[in-house]
Amino acid sequence: MKESYRNIINYSISEMNAAEDQVASISESMRQIRDLSINSTNVAYDGNVATLGTYIKGILNDLVRNSNADFNGKYLFSGTSTTPDNIKASFPDMNNMPYEIVEGNSTDENPSGLKVVFKGNMDNRVINKDAHSQEIININPNSLFGEGGVKYFQPIIEMYNVLQFNSDGSKRETLDSLSNEDKSKINEFQKQIANNLEVVNKNTALFAAKRNRMDSVGTQMSEEIVRLEEVKSLKEDADMPRILTELAKEENALQYSLSTGSKIQKYSLFDFI
């Protein structure tokens, strides 16, 4: 039974390591977007804001791709909806991945119509570490991307809208510059992204600490299994003399029986009359 628990723990640790790697990529993408947003307000980038917006959208696509990462065919950041069959799309033309960028109708507040939708759930995935305790092994979507699993995407999309569209909703020309109002909005969005990134990094550190504890439990369990095998082997070794003695007795008895039988066979019935 302990070996079964150890195997579960070791597999879970591998999955948690994979999740940490993906979150590291997600954090890096968020940092890049923040850096680009700060650069966009610099006079040196006047005339290149639309290009920066296009670049940010590309990083947003990377973010969503990392958010849809899986480990051995199971999505890492979608709660207990870990397979394509578990993902319930709101519309027929949506894919069967947990996160997706969709383009809706243009509005004054959202001229691009872009939004990120989450199709998983907020349930925690739990394993039995032993007969008496359990552990959560996934990063909850709320911890990774805020309320509803999508909140942290919003300032990124709003940033993209400012860089790609004028205040009247028209598409920016290639050499357009930002107004002071635009720069003020971008400054607010980059602060939100910075705060969100801090929360993501904090939650990732807590997750890593949990994985380290799991690693320690797995190591202790492996050592205990080895000790039990050693004790079992010692017990078997300790019984060997007794087993050999019993075998010797049985062999002597057999030899005596065979010897007696051969002697009896030398005599006939007349020898006993």
Rank of each mutant, 00 (worst) to 15 (best):
M1D: 15
M1A: 15
N7A: 08
N7Q: 08
Y11N: 11
S14L: 08
S14P: 00
E28A: 14
M30P: 00
Q32N: 15
I33L: 14
L36T: 06
S37T: 15
V43G: 04
A44H: 04
A44T: 15
A44L: 13
A44N: 11
D46N: 15
A50H: 04
L52G: 02
G58Y: 05
L63R: 07
R65K: 14
D70M: 09
D70R: 07
F71L: 05
K74W: 00
G79Y: 04
S81Y: 03
F91I: 12
N95G: 14
N95P: 01
P98G: 03
P98R: 09
E103S: 09
N105Q: 06
S106D: 06
E109A: 14
P111K: 15
P111M: 14
G113L: 14
V116S: 08
D123G: 11
D123R: 03
R125M: 03
R125I: 06
I127F: 00
I127K: 00
A131P: 08
Q134A: 06
Q134S: 09
E135Q: 13
E135L: 10
I137T: 09
I139M: 13
I139N: 03
P155N: 09
Q164S: 15
N166G: 03
S167M: 06
S167W: 00
S170K: 10
L175T: 12
S177Y: 02
S179D: 13
N180D: 13
N180I: 05
I186G: 00
E188V: 03
Q192G: 02
I193R: 15
I193W: 10
A205G: 15
K210M: 05
R211L: 02
M214Y: 04
D215W: 03
I225M: 11
R227T: 07
L228N: 13
L228E: 15
E229M: 13
K232I: 01
L244W: 01
L244S: 08
A253P: 01
Y256R: 10
L258R: 14
S259G: 07
S262K: 15
I264N: 05
I264E: 08
Y267I: 12
Y267E: 05
